[in-house]
Computed example of a mutant assay.
Amino acid sequence: MKKLLNMFWTFFKIGAFTFGGGYAMIPLIEIEVVNKKKWLSKEDFLDVIVISQTFPGALAVNSSVFIGYRTCGLLGAIIGLLGVVLPSFFIILLVAVFFMKFRDYYYVDLVFKGISAAVPMLILIAVVSLSKSLKKNYANLIIILISMGSILFFNVHPVIVILLSGLYGVIFLGKKVK
């Protein structure tokens, strides 16, 4: 029971203090789940992030469900989900009730400008952190360059890039099962 409450509180804090969506949450989730709590190894965390990205829905929600399930089974998945979703629910409720009255205030506008400036840095930290556990070889470098080029220059949808990268991994990088 203590572990479930700890999990709820961990994901509640992450959900409450992270702006900018799931990618901005990755560094915080990693610090809590891998470094502090040691619920997952760095490699397992990377697997959870990859799987979370391929499933429909928000990255933070998917990763909290997968981490909760991996740590404490079905109840852990539910607790992780509630922990990460409830702060947003309460914040949106408060915003709906009070924000419209204060939106045009100078200092409220400044707060949101400051938050929006920090979000790209949180995403960059997530990219750097995840890239550290990626094997440094030519195959991965080629996949990264082709993926970036396809999305940036040829407007290929990211879902197609993810699916094709996964297919490439299965066909060319997979280990034979004995």
Results as ranks from 00 to 15, higher is better:
P158E: 04
I67T: 01
I29E: 01
P27M: 07
A126F: 11
S64M: 08
S63D: 05
V85E: 01
G169E: 12
G21S: 05
L74H: 02
S131H: 13
V85N: 02
M25C: 13
L134V: 15
Y105L: 09
S165Q: 05
A16L: 15
N35D: 15
K2H: 01
G149H: 10
V111H: 04
K101S: 12
V50E: 11
K136V: 14
I31D: 14
I115W: 10
G76S: 04
L74C: 00
L164K: 06
I67W: 04
V161E: 07
F19P: 12
I14Q: 02
K13H: 08
K38L: 05
T18M: 14
I49A: 01
S64P: 09
T54M: 15
I26T: 02
F55R: 00
V170D: 02
I92V: 15
V177G: 06
R70T: 08
H157A: 05
I78W: 11
I67V: 14
A16R: 04
F90N: 03
L173N: 14
Y106R: 12
K13W: 07
F89P: 02
A77C: 12
L4Y: 06
G169V: 06
L152T: 09
V95H: 04
G21P: 09
A77N: 09
L124C: 13
T71I: 04
L122Y: 05
F8A: 04
W9V: 09
T54D: 03
I146L: 12
E30I: 00
S133I: 14
L46R: 11
P27T: 08
V50W: 00
P158F: 07
F99R: 00
G20T: 05
F8M: 06
F66C: 05
D104S: 14
V84I: 12
Y105F: 07
G169C: 04
V119N: 03
V95A: 15
S150T: 11
I14S: 04
L124W: 03
N137V: 08
G174T: 02
T71R: 09
L173A: 10
I171G: 02
V156S: 02
K2A: 03
L28C: 00
K36W: 01
L74M: 13
Y168H: 02
K176I: 13
I142P: 03
L134W: 06
Q53V: 01
M148V: 15
V156K: 08
H157I: 02
L94K: 02
I92T: 13
S150K: 01
I151M: 14
S133W: 05
A60K: 06
P56N: 06
K38E: 15
L152R: 04
L40W: 10
Y105P: 00
